[in-house]
Nucleic acid binder design. Structure first.
Lengths: 127, 127
DNA sequence: GTGGCCCTACGACAGCCGTGGTAGCTTTTT
DNA sequence: AAAAAGCTACCACGGCTGTCGTAGGGCCAC
């Protein structure tokens, strides 16, 4: 289990998602990249970015005017790994009951499973 | 998405897990059913059970001595459905990226997928 | 150079959650 | 019946998260 990486909250993840998307950016750029529906106040994003920096999830790379430009320090993959690992703890740490639940509740199609299978075969690295 | 059911926190889920296991029981029984490692104070369990009752996740069915006996009012399945649904929101609401991630990070075996496939075929109800 | 705008730094706050203490009533045990 | 043990009801509290406001400094256009 990769409990090494930083744990991100839901909104921190959304902010990171934008940063991963654009590579790097200012608070304002992140703000404007957020879907209109859930676009909070400027300072809210700012706070999140600050917390991300405290956690080491992002870093300042330079300034444009007096605005900081931030860049992710953790990969999307690592972040999701941590997220999923934490979630799996609720299922005893194993993915199987989770996938079983997904299948039972009709949230998975055969195609989904087949795609997963391909990924598995193509990348037989063990976790 | 089943956002109808009650949302349970991690520890609430653990308590429910014990209640589902024994069918019904007192605070003390739940406490003692919890794995020794993460066994908190009696009153902690009591607080959680009270909150569960406020939420409608459990109900008092009778008293033994002066102790209440509680019974789940939501099924394990419904509870996990809600849990998973909320989690899936982080993946855009779809299970596919999650399963893909699991496959890529080696958390799934082919056997896991095959089992899921069987469940899928056996229960072709759509969500 | 100065007014206006933008950015930063910091503080605040409420809700949720895990955690447990206390007081007082009940049941059981001497 | 008096003491001991158990249970309930309620309160408290600190950490985390989402949310934002304010104060003050910097930059740009005029």
């Amino acid at each position: 289990m990769s409990k090494t990486t930083i744990r991100l909250t839901r909104f921190e993840l959304e902010v990171m998602e934008e940063l991963w998307g654009i590579g790097q950016g200012s608070v304002r750029e992140v703000l404007e990249a957020l879907p209109t529906r859930r676009r909070p106040a400027y300072t809210t994003v700012q706070t999140i970015v600050r917390r991300l920096e405290e956690k080491g999830a992002v870093e300042q790379v330079r300034k444009i005017g007096n605005a900081h430009i931030y860049r992710p320090r953790v990969s999307r993959k690592a972040a999701y790994r941590r997220l999923v690992d934490d979630f799996l703890d609720l299922f005893g740490g194993s993915a199987r009951p989770l996938v079983a639940h997904l299948a039972e509740s009709g949230k998975l199609s055969l195609e989904d499973l087949r795609q997963a299978e391909e990924l598995l075969v193509g990348e037989p690295e063990s976790a």
